[in-house]
Amino acid sequence: MTIATRIEGGAAYVSVAGEAALCDPAGALFLPAHGLLVVSDLHLEKGAAFARRGVMMPPYDTAATLDRLARVVEAYDPAAVISLGDSFHDVVGARHMPEPFRQRLGAIMSGRDWFWIVGNHDPEPPAGLPGRTVSEIAVGNLLFRHEPAARACDGEVAGHLHPGARIVRRGRSVRRPCFATDGRRLVMPAFGALTGVLNVRDRAFLRLFEWNAFRAYMLGTGKVYPVDGKMLSPG
């Protein structure tokens, strides 16, 4: 299977199970036919979650993630938004979120259908926030859920794994978060400001994809770079 690569304004078009989608360099996915914007693994209030355990991470991650979220929501003006799980870093995150952040998030959500998909970090609806909480949701040919199913699976869009890819050239290496897809399913990069990455060459990804059709859409500065699976390095 070949995937046509078209880049527009820094974003790259992909086709997943026949649905056209746009991979935005900020790490969001937009489906023009459905007016749907998808973000995954926001991990809001991650800094505060660490602080609760005595590790004083900078308290700026929530603001940074919300800034980024506001920008993509403004740019695509979607009718509906799916937050694909792990929206908050821990169960009490939403309840303890400082009021200014709560208002900011409310403003971003206002006037759109908003779906919180439950994740392993946030198995319950976020306290005191609007939007519907579901475990998965189907749109067109696609099924959106937090954790990818164990086997190859048509039309699934998932998050959870924080995919990243690495290339090595002339003794130098570049590692970036990425959209990971074989054209049948897609795993979203983590959108949150304080989130790490897991290399797509890791075992956790092994059974998820048709590897000869695999491509990583690596997030550059203001631009997405499609890189063929065989050019990627482990580690």
């Binding site: 050239r169 002339r170 003794g171 570049v174 690596m218 890189v227 063929d228």
Partner: peptide, 18 residues
Amino acid sequence: SVNGETSDMLLAEVADEL
């Protein structure tokens, strides 16, 4: 090698090859 700040150039190069 010079450890410059050109990681995006490196990415672009690989993407161009593709």
